[in-house]
């Protein structure tokens, strides 16, 4: 059973480059096919790995149900979705922060400690609700799927909760950060049944990836 395929779900977008590099370093071949063509699946028989290219928010779903044995997902997505998967490794890349932001003009006379009710547009309704309810603040969440920064300008909500990496997008849309909710990096996630039933191969892969991550860090 050593040559059975292990299926790995990779997220499109900002974490893809690092993900491809990491798996290339540990011996996967031909991953440029996923970057350069419109391919969504790549099978590398030499390394016994099969890669699926998915939207980042779908990776935990594939892994939880065992449609993929393992995958790479942002910690933000994992906390938001609360899926039942193992997270054995912080991969270190894809760093970003989840923050509360508001228009500059609102900030002048605003004190976050005095909030009692806020209306927030976000892709992260669960994290947002948990964050504010922990502080005893009532929150009305407007769930959006993209272009969150537009919401205050268009009058949909006063504030937003969104990921920032450099803060440039916020500034371009006249927004400023008021609070950080969490920091997030890319995580390796593994299906529970796969870890048990294919543990030799999975454990080998986790160990190899951990070595690389450690080498990259130092």
């Amino acid at each position: 059973m050593t040559n059975e395929l292990i299926t790995v779900a990779l997220p499109k977008g900002r974490m893809l480059e690092d993900s491809l590099r990491l798996f290339t370093v540990i011996g996967a071949n031909g991953l440029e096919n996923l970057r350069e063509s419109r391919r969504l699946i790549w099978e590398d028989t030499t390394s016994g790995l099969r890669f699926l290219l998915l939207r980042g928010v779908d990776v935990p779903t594939y892994v939880e149900h065992g449609a993929a044995d393992m995958g790479i997902a942002g910690k933000d997505v994992l906390i938001e979705q609360g899926k039942d998967v193992y997270e054995p490794l912080d991969l270190g890349f894809g760093f970003c922060r989840l923050v509360v932001a508001e228009p500059i003009e609102l900030q002048g006379n605003d004190d976050p400690r005095a909030w009692s009710y806020v209306r927030i547009a976000t892709k992260y309704p669960n994290i947002t609700e948990r964050h504010f309810s922990r502080k005893g603040i009532q929150v009305e969440v407007v769930k959006l799927y993209g272009s969150i920064e537009l919401a205050p300008m268009a009058g949909l909500s006063e504030r937003i909760v969104d990921l920032v990496s450099s803060g440039k997008t916020l500034a371009e849309n006249g927004l400023v950060e008021v609070e950080e909710i969490m920091k997030a990096t890319a995580r390796l996630i593994v299906n529970r049944a796969s870890l048990k039933t294919k543990y030799r191969r999975i454990k080998g892969l986790i160990d190899r990836l951990a070595e690389e991550v450690r080498a990259l860090r130092s």
Binding site: G66, D84, A193, K196, T197
Partner: peptide, 29 residues
């Protein structure tokens, strides 16, 4: 058998040896 000493699943009332059955075809026990 496989052994997993890091497994903390199960109910709060469990107090000793616990076990789950897995197959490759299914992502859950």
């Amino acid at each position: 058998l496989i052994i997993d000493l890091g497994e903390t699943y199960g109910f709060e009332y469990h107090s000793g040896v616990v076990f789950e059955a897995f197959t490759k075809a299914l992502g859950y026990p």
